[in-house]
Amino acid sequence: MPKYYDFKVAGYYLYFTSFCVVECMHVHASDSKLTEGGSAKFFVKNNGDTVLQNRGILNDREISKISEFIKEHYQEMYLRWSQYSEKGYYEK
């Protein structure tokens, strides 16, 4: 399971799975188990904005912090994503 970073953001790892690469770019946020159960899922637009598909167990404050982090680092994160997937950003 590729992590975007080795550190946690708002107490959660940001990652994607090998099953994820068939979708457009997104970010899962989960605890150390790195499972989709209980994780949040953020689709990432080409300007760094996110669309929350699943909030998991995260509260509003954690979601806001992670969204802000993604907005600041989405281009760098996309470089990691594009090593595994040809799918681009979320465009809807």
Rank of each mutant, 00 (worst) to 15 (best):
M1L: 15
P2W: 09
K3V: 05
Y4S: 11
Y5L: 10
Y5I: 09
F7V: 11
F7T: 13
K8W: 03
V9D: 03
V9A: 10
A10N: 11
G11W: 01
Y12N: 07
Y13F: 13
F19W: 08
F19H: 09
C20E: 04
V21W: 03
V22L: 08
E23Y: 15
C24V: 10
C24A: 06
M25E: 10
M25S: 09
H26C: 06
H28C: 03
H28S: 09
A29Q: 05
A29K: 02
S30Q: 13
S32R: 14
S32W: 14
S32V: 06
K33G: 08
K33Y: 13
L34D: 09
L34P: 07
T35D: 15
T35R: 13
T35G: 12
E36Y: 09
G37Q: 13
K41I: 07
K41E: 14
K41Y: 14
K41D: 14
F42A: 02
K45Y: 07
G48W: 03
D49V: 05
R55G: 10
G56E: 09
G56L: 11
I57G: 14
D60T: 11
D60Y: 04
D60M: 00
E62Y: 00
I63V: 07
I63E: 13
I63P: 02
S64A: 09
K65N: 10
K65M: 15
E68W: 03
E68H: 08
F69P: 01
K71C: 04
K71Y: 05
E72R: 07
H73A: 02
H73L: 01
Y74E: 02
Q75L: 14
M77S: 08
R80H: 07
S82F: 05
S82K: 05
Y84P: 02
E86S: 13
E86F: 04
E86V: 00
G88M: 02
Y89R: 01
Y89V: 01
Y89F: 11
Y90E: 15
K92A: 13
